[in-house]
């Protein structure tokens, strides 16, 4: 099986879906002539021309709205945000227009659109360029929120997202674009709404998604080597709709859970997951569910401070020790 980067997996997904369906087009800042700020759209302008690979002005609200308007009348836009940090300017469109149109039109107007781009902190980009908005979008009924961790999932999920009849917020990461992984040749999709057990284990469940899957994997390795603890890693892959069954199944097995996420703690994804666990797995719990999140601060520029702000394998290990009563 070929090993390719996350970036190229996304590129393949876009190319294949644009070949498959003439209604699919890509729009965003620098997606065409520049070949993509992070080169996800490399080669697409040559392949599909400027009608379908559309460079926009720096006008996030505007082109998000244009995408939604086009989706209202039957196109299937893929809107790239150079980063999700800039999409705050467009969040009115995403929430008020895309997410609600179907409902307030009484089911008449679906919005089959994908908003995608990298989110969360990269390296030393400071407060305004280092934000994980996963929970913001996951809060909104009408949106689907997808956050793949591997090249395989990235490709399969993006293809599913493009084919979905609903607005999908697709969260990537600057730090993940170079990640490599096996991606089969030929057609496949990964369904939205299904978590993936990335590692089976019996002692504690680590719920994670996107960048924190790597954090959880490192923590799991350390836990196995140093404490003989077998962690189970549940990669959510889709935040909304959330695969609660997968989480509950795992927690029922391990009786313990640590939720790892990149965003801020308050009202975060983990808060929601903890709620589901206390609701559906209460009698399976042998310890409180702990969360490892970004520190509750804007991301600082200084490298050491930034590192301290982000979720780390060490913090996950510490949390696991606490709830396995090992410390």
């Amino acid at each position: 099986m070929p090993t390719i980067t996350y970036r190229d997996a996304l590129n393949q997904a876009l190319k294949e879906e644009m070949e498959r369906d003439a209604n699919v087009f890509l729009m965003g800042e620098e997606v065409g002539v520049y070949q993509g700020a992070y080169k996800v759209s490399r080669g697409l302008l040559d392949a599909f021309g400027e009608d379908r690979v559309v460079d926009t002005p720096i006008t996030e609200l505007g082109f998000a709205g244009v995408g939604i308007g086009a989706a209202m009348v039957g196109l299937r836009p893929v809107i790239e945000f150079m980063t999700w940090n800039f999409a705050l300017l467009a969040i009115d469109q995403i929430v008020n227009s895309a997410a609600k149109m179907l409902y307030m039109s009484g089911g008449q107007i679906p919005i089959p659109i994908v908003f995608r781009g990298p989110g969360g902190a990269a390296l030393q980009l400071a407060a305004q360029h280092s934000q994980a908005f996963d929970s913001w979008y996951a809060h909104v009924p009408g949106l689907k929120v997808v956050a793949p961790a591997t090249p395989y999932d990235a490709k399969g999920l993006l293809k599913s997202a493009i084919r979905d009849e609903n607005p999908v917020v697709f969260l990537e990461g600057e730090m993940m674009y170079n990640a490599k992984g096996e991606v089969p040749e030929g057609e496949y999709t990964v369904p939205l709404g299904e978590a993936d057990v990335k590692l089976e284990g019996s002692d504690v469940t680590l719920v994670c998604h996107a960048k924190t899957v790597t954090v959880a994997q490192r923590a799991a390795q350390q836990l196995a080597e140093e404490c003989g603890i077998a962690a189970e890693i549940v990669d959510l892959r889709t935040i909304r709709p959330l695969d609660t069954d997968a989480i509950i199944r795992s927690v029922a097995k391990t009786n313990r859970c640590v939720v790892v996420e990149e965003g801020w703690p308050f009202c975060g994804i983990g808060a929601q997951i903890v709620d589901y666990i206390q609701l559906y797995a209460f009698d399976h719990l042998d310890a409180p569910v702990l969360r490892v999140t970004q520190a509750d601060v804007p991301i600082p520029y200084n490298k050491r401070l930034e590192k301290a702000a982000k979720p780390s394998p060490e913090r996950v290990v510490e949390a696991v020790k606490q709830i396995t009563y090992l410390d």
């Binding site: 709205g65 244009v66 086009a70 209202m72 196109l75 469109q93 227009s97």
Partner: peptide, 10 residues
Amino acid sequence: IPLVAGAAFA
């Protein structure tokens, strides 16, 4: 207003 432009884009 951007939605109008979007329909026109389509």
